[in-house]
Amino acid sequence: MFYENRPKIKIPRTFVENILDIAAIILFIAGAANLIMQWSSIPGTVPIHFNGAGEPDGWGSKVNLWILLVIGSMMWVLLTVLEKFPHVYNYLFLTEENAERQYKNARLMLNVIKNEVLLFFIYMSWVSGEIANVKNTSLSMWDLPIFIITITASIAFFIVRSIKLK
């Protein structure tokens, strides 16, 4: 079914979607507040790239810590807008009968992923500041794999759920 022919159903946001968004916003505000409070103690040069072992191998201005938060928040806002149009997503099994279930599932998947991505950007801004302040020497070698596994597991969970909802 082409997306032009798909039903455009107005589905109210769920309690879970609202809680996830509120939690992400609170954590974003906390991350920005932490950066503001720590700003004067952060040296002018901070790590902006890490090798596979989690050691910094690229350095840049401390303004890059804000850039991480801006990129994360811009992605969050854009994905929030995209959440409002579940009829344009790709679906494995979409029919008139299961459209509402599939839309809810896909919208929740997008909500979970956008919040996971924002949390990763907040975390990277915080840990880069910690490394620059020599409170920490490197990322854990598990930080990026955990993020990738989390995103992949979320996608897999919602794909399996979509198949069950057909």
Rank of each mutant, 00 (worst) to 15 (best):
A106F: 13
G60Y: 06
L68G: 10
Y89F: 13
Q38E: 15
F50V: 11
Y103F: 15
M74V: 15
N98H: 01
Y123L: 11
E116M: 14
N64I: 02
Q38A: 13
F28W: 08
V77H: 01
I36P: 01
E55S: 10
S40M: 10
I19Q: 08
D57C: 04
V117T: 10
H49W: 04
H49E: 09
L78V: 03
I42K: 01
L94C: 13
F120D: 06
M75Y: 06
F85E: 06
L69S: 03
E116L: 15
P86W: 10
T95V: 04
N51M: 04
F93R: 03
A106D: 01
L20Y: 06
I67E: 03
V46D: 07
E97G: 05
L82H: 01
Q102I: 14
S61Q: 00
L35V: 11
V81I: 14
L79I: 03
V134M: 10
A106R: 10
I67C: 09
V63N: 11
D21M: 12
L69P: 00
V134L: 12
N18S: 14
A132T: 04
M109V: 03
T45I: 14
A33P: 00
L92D: 13
G52P: 04
N133Q: 15
P86F: 11
L79G: 03
L92Y: 12
G129L: 00
M124T: 04
K135G: 06
W39V: 04
Y103T: 11
Y103I: 07
P86A: 14
L69T: 06
V112L: 09
A132V: 02
W76Y: 15
I11P: 07
R13A: 02
A24D: 02
I26R: 06
